[in-house]
Amino acid sequence: MVALSVVLTFLFVILIDMLVLKFQGKTHPAFENSFVEDTVSIFDDAKIVIPKNMFLSKSHIWLKKLSKGLYQIGIDNFLCKSFTNMSFNKFPEPGNKLKFGDALFEYRVGNKTLKILSPVDGIVSSINKTESRDKIIDPYSQWQVIIQAERIDAQNNFLSGKKAAVWIKEEFKRLEDFVYAHSGNTELVGATMYDGGKPVESVAEKIIENYLEDFEKEFLKL
């Protein structure tokens, strides 16, 4: 009898809670319509597709040959996924000369900035001024700068195709370690590593944001 009463009390409380929720016009989370779980993780390897004719530089930008001596430049999906909340800043004037290692443009994250370095010598021929510039949906089709390059050095270490994909994966791994190392909050970040969803990105992002200089040193060097 006692056993039964205890169980009934337990069930009764759950029932009352449902009623209370109903009264308040809310639904219990168990009976909400299931929504599609966001399973895309920033560290989800399977999602990386790098177009064939692209070349990635170690500073996480891509080059695409338009015609002889003319290259489109954009950011790769690593950079794009590391920060969801960012904007581009300080583009060079068209006609300016750029050297290997100069800042191509700046990347604004919160109230800090990152310098994205140019992997080539050349002259800026045009920049993307459309409004959709900051809202990157497909990083590999949205270009930022077109540059006229005189010569492309082999030592610039461009990657392409499968190798580029492997490298990006490896970079995500490194980012994982980076976030770990800078968190002092291992277990929580551990959660972010293995579980998908938006909240995850925001934590990793917060950590990266707090250690932006380190991030620059680790990931944006040529």
Partner: peptide
């Protein structure tokens, strides 16, 4: 994989457990 049934079954298991220990 359905949240509703997952919830219900967890309530059931807990109830069964309460019964068992109380018994």
């Amino acid at each position: 994989e359905d949240r509703k049934w997952l919830f219900i079954s967890s309530v059931l298991v807990i109830s069964g457990f309460i019964l068992d220990r109380m018994n």
